[in-house]
Design a binder for these strands. Structure first.
Length: 565
DNA sequence: GCCCATTGTCC
DNA sequence: GGACAG
DNA sequence: GGGC
């Protein structure tokens, strides 16, 4: 990552030891002797600049070549050559012969995100002492170079280097290693968390008052709408955190991204006062020390330095495109990228694709488009017509974002059920009759995941209205009456709300899935309610009625449009 | 140092 | 059994 | 990244 970044700002990267080399950037953890041994040198040539790994980052931050002789860039074991030559003005030019190669720091290409150079994004310590070239004192560049004296050009060990490059490329989607030092450099302050202690006490004593405090931090306990966004005094902070969240999501750092999402949710709830200090921020659930510092930084400076850095990350548009193909996840997308495929056309021509992926590519634009509510209803009506022509007691419920009240939806989620009818009977009708009929009428266009005859409950595919040519993703969930409530919770979502409900259930020794709520679940690690593989399925508590499931879980009822987390 | 939801289907 | 989806 |  550091190499890629430095290249973007105008550095050149020499893969062998040659006359163009001006700086040697040494990884933290390596010392001077290791470097010279690796380069097969007795001693570093006087004209060579050897600095620690933080140097390029600082140069980028300050938009200049900072003084490489500063203490913070010193490599362990390196004794600065006793230079002080008579300071000849000409000699103060930076490496004249080399500068023409690489030493002009250039602007990053993405111009939109840049700002004034005098506010470098570093810690206070660094910011207060902008390094300056004026202090640089070095010997004039010698004519006979060290590598010439040592005889042969060094046969660079390109295997090792290649391995490092491959590794760097593989690591580039991962967390922002680059910013670690930024975040760690701040001394942590003792934070007041007495409130939290009390919360823990309650749960540890295993007393279960009607609504113990420890439950309050679950997403499903709070009502959330999309509406209360612009009135929140923390809206600006939330927006910045959201962008970080999106960034980590794009990097496929699931846990960091959900951490941000949870913190954002807490901040959304705090809609009366503006959270400014990190002490206050840390009192919010899901906000720890580091997020609290970030919130404070945003409140004071209206921006976040590590987000500025994140924006510079080369986001791989090819990867992002591949990820939008139905049936393609991060594993496959990165495999294709590393195989050199650069476009959907490449994939069609060269990659071997699963059937679903073929559909996903052929209907790439269709599946990535959203449809208005009215169209969702039309699709459901087509299915309902066919179903009712067979048996009018079948019921269809439109679920998903539609039920949550969204103005547009990415797909159509339908629950199909019928009173006093077993799941296998429902399945037979749907798979043997309804689906074939819908294919014949031209409504259904493709099957992406068909339910197995034995015990399946879902059917995924694509549908298209006669008045349109855009294929839509459509899902059927086949549900017996006795499980309708649980299925509705499951299929209404959103995903965060579901996970929160299920997590809460497991904390209470129960289990929630699309079939029902179960109690007395024993899990493998001996602790009945926290985690681990379950040993017993548990006994059913509720399933047919959404409200009863909420009730049994101790969650205040929330209509679908308040389940947006 | 581990967990962070759970299940069905595809391959 | 991992990847992917919902 | 937070909670335990």
């Amino acid at each position: 990552m550091r190499i890629v970044k430095a290249l973007k700002y105008g550095a050149t990267w020499q893969k062998d030891w040659n006359a163009r080399v001006t700086h040697i950037i040494v990884d933290r953890g390596m010392n001077y002797n290791q470097v010279t041994a690796f380069l097969k040198l007795q001693v570093l040539p006087n004209n060579m600049i050897m600095v620690g790994e933080g140097y390029p980052a600082d140069c980028i931050a300050y938009r200049m070549l900072v003084d490489p002789t500063q203490q913070r860039y010193q490599v362990a074991g390196y004794i600065k050559p006793a230079v002080p030559f008579a300071v000849d003005p000409a000699a103060r030019e930076v490496a004249p012969s080399a500068s023409s190669f690489s030493l002009q720091l250039k602007q990053a290409r993405r111009a939109g995100t840049r700002r004034e150079p005098q506010t470098p994004s570093r810690t206070e310590e660094a910011a207060s002492t902008p390094p300056t070239l004026e202090t640089v004192r070095r010997a004039p560049r010698s004519e006979n170079h060290a590598w010439e004296r040592t005889g042969d050009l060094i046969q660079q060990d390109s295997d090792e280097l290649d391995a490092a490059i491959r590794q760097a490329k593989e690591l580039q989607h991962l967390p922002l290693e680059f910013h670690k030092q930024d975040e760690d450099s701040r001394p942590s302050s003792p934070a007041g968390d007495e409130e939290d202690d009390e919360v823990e006490h309650v749960s540890k004593k295993a007393k279960m008052p009607p609504n113990p405090a420890w439950q309050d931090r679950f997403q499903c306990m709070q009502k959330h709408t999309s509406s209360d966004s612009l009135t929140n005094p923390n809206a600006a902070t939330i927006a910045v955190l959201q962008e970080m969240c999106d960034h980590y999501a794009a990097m496929r750092d699931e846990w960091r991204s959900t951490a941000y999402r949870r913190a954002i949710a807490s901040l959304c709830k705090e809609n009366t006062v503006r959270v400014v200090t990190k002490e206050d921020a840390q009192k919010l659930p899901f906000v720890g020390e580091r997020l609290a510092e970030k919130i404070e930084e945003i409140a004071f400076t209206n921006r976040l330095r590590c987000l500025d850095n994140a924006r510079l990350e080369p986001n791989d548009h090819v990867l992002q495109t591949f990820l939008k193909i139905h049936g393609v996840g991060f594993a496959q997308a990165s495999r294709w990228v590393s195989q050199g495929y650069r476009s959907l056309e490449d994939l069609l021509a060269k990659a071997n694709l699963s059937e679903n992926q073929k559909v996903g590519i052929a209907r790439f634009d269709d599946f990535n488009a959203r449809m208005p509510r009215a169209e969702v209803e039309e699709h459901a009506a087509v299915v309902r017509d066919v179903l009712h022509r067979i048996d009018a007691t079948f019921q269809i419920h439109i679920m998903g974002s539609y039920r949550r009240g969204a103005e547009s939806s990415a797909d159509i989620d339908l629950i199909i059920t019928r009173p006093s009818t077993s799941i296998s009977q429902i399945r037979t009708v749907i798979i043997d009759t309804v689906v074939p009929k819908l294919f014949n009428s031209g409504f259904l266009k493709a099957t992406l995941a068909a339910t197995s005859r034995a015990n399946g409950t879902k059917w995924h595919g694509a549908s298209c209205l006669p008045t349109s040519k855009t294929w839509r993703r459509i899902d059927f969930l086949l549900v017996p009456e006795s499980e309708l409530g649980a299925a509705m919770i499951y299929f209404t979502g959103n995903d965060i709300f579901n996970r929160s409900m299920r997590l809460l259930a497991s904390k209470k020794g129960m289990r929630l899935n699309q079939r029902g709520l179960y109690k007395d679940v024993m899990r493998g690690d001996g602790r009945p309610c926290s985690r681990g593989e379950k040993l017993t399925e548990g006994t059913p508590v509720a399933g047919s009625d959404e409200k009863k499931i909420f009730e049994a879980l101790g969650v205040p009822w929330r209509p679908p449009h308040h389940r947006i987390c």
